[in-house]
Amino acid sequence: MAQAHEVNEQGYKIFKLGDFTFRRDEYFAHIGWPGGVHSISVENFLRALMRDVAWGFFYGTVSFDAVFGTTNHYGTVEVFVGLRNEAYWRNNKHFVQTFDSNQTTGIFKAILEDWTNEGFDPFAAPEETRIAFGPKHGSNRAAIERMRVTAKRMVGADGDATLRNDANGYKVNRQFAGYQPEKLEVHPEPGFENEVHAFDFFDYLMRSDVTWNPSVVSAVKHNLICATTEEYMLPVIHGNDRVEWFLQLSDQIDWLVYDGKTGKPRARVVAKAGDICAMPADIQHQGISPKRSMLLVWENGDSALPDLYASGKLKPYPVEF
């Protein structure tokens, strides 16, 4: 049963989810379970928690660091300590509990709301937000309640997700200020105004007010082009339950790749503009982007895939040559 308990001396509520306890002080989030306690910088914790909540636990595993995380089973969610870390599970130090997804979302949202102080935006790049630290002071509901965009066909198409512009509050990000957009021409014949559609994908992306938050821009059945702007570091280590692909649209991201089961390093993938690569289904990855960059994340939304990969019916990498 998830419930909030008392308020601690820094002014923050203490939360329980099953046998897990979540408490924060001025600098750290402390996660307790019957076998121990794990501590994470509260800034990193809130950034990771924000993605986990906004993504509905996303595809597969969202690790907040090398120890704590969640695995999505689409209706239920595993909350774990050490499950993706060989030192933990080999020594039987791991701990896992499974909860209803809605119940877990509820408690995670409550933590976000109570622990996010005024001025701190867990979606923003570090240079664009005030700090997460200190005793409780205010809140920032506007920052943590953004809706994730999911286009049904294509952003800007008739009846679909809306475009971004100055008028609706989306200004070009400071790190793309020097980019000169190209002129787009759309010339529909009479009667086809709602069927002939194109939009400036780069301009749309450069106006994103969040980082590390892919959202669907164009969908062809289960073929989902998602887009996101990235700056600083992906605040989670993502272990997908299927193959996903990254196409670097601008600048550079380095992907630090770890084994999905042991957490041991496997590769570093350096992606520059125009580079495209797969992330196999048996790894975990974390990206770093020294400058704000544009990334196309390409997903397969077929819900049958996790079982096919987990059972070994599909190989963890996408092609053989």
Partner: peptide
Amino acid sequence: GRIVARRGHMAL
């Protein structure tokens, strides 16, 4: 109709 798309433009 027709579309003239340049760098960064996506067409349906």
